[in-house]
């Protein structure tokens, strides 16, 4: 696939156009990725597809090869993989807190110790998610650096 980047004037709206023979899975994946960078991600619930603003997401979880997006009280399935979300959302205040969860730090109310060196994040919707041992050091380093920034 050839990639062209063309600079446009400041008064024109930025856009991305994909020239393709068919709107296959690869093209759809590119579209989802770009939408994520732009502030929303697609998720399905039943037969409907929704655009979910990144700021409304509480956390994203991978369960048995399926990825789910959790908002205040809803959940949506998505085709993007967790590592793709990690790439898209790393500059938007999201952080990996375990092998299967990426957390929106803006939705955390408080942190408490759990057993065995793990920590429990209480979210603003009352849900709890666990920061696993492996990710605790990275989490501490990230928020202490960003808190001082």
């Amino acid at each position: 696939m050839e990639i062209k980047v063309r600079k446009i004037g400041g008064q024109e709206q930025e856009y991305i156009e994909i020239g393709c023979h068919a709107e296959d899975a690869r093209v759809k994946s590119i579209v989802r990725f770009v939408k994520g960078l732009d502030g929303s991600v697609s998720g399905s619930k039943g037969e409907h597809i929704y655009e979910i603003p990144v700021v409304d997401i509480f956390y994203i979880e991978s369960v048995d090869d399926h990825t789910f997006i959790y908002t205040y009280k809803d959940s949506f399935e998505t085709n993007l993989k967790l590592y793709e979300f990690e790439e898209i959302l790393k500059e938007k205040g999201y952080l990996r807190i375990s092998k299967s969860v990426i957390l929106n730090l803006m939705k955390v109310d408080s942190i408490k110790p759990a057993l065995n060196g793990r920590f429990l994040c209480k979210l603003t919707n009352g849900e709890d998610v666990i920061i696993s041992r492996k990710y605790v050091a990275e989490f501490r380093e990230f928020i202490s650096r960003r808190a001082g920034a």
Binding site: G93, L105, M106, V108, S110, I111, K112, P113, G117, F119, F139, R140, I143, S144, R146, A147, G148, A149
Partner: peptide, 19 residues
Amino acid sequence: DFRTAKKMTDDLKAFQKSN
């Protein structure tokens, strides 16, 4: 760990405030 959690919560609040 409790002390660490308190520091993490404080840092998190500062992060949220700045964002």
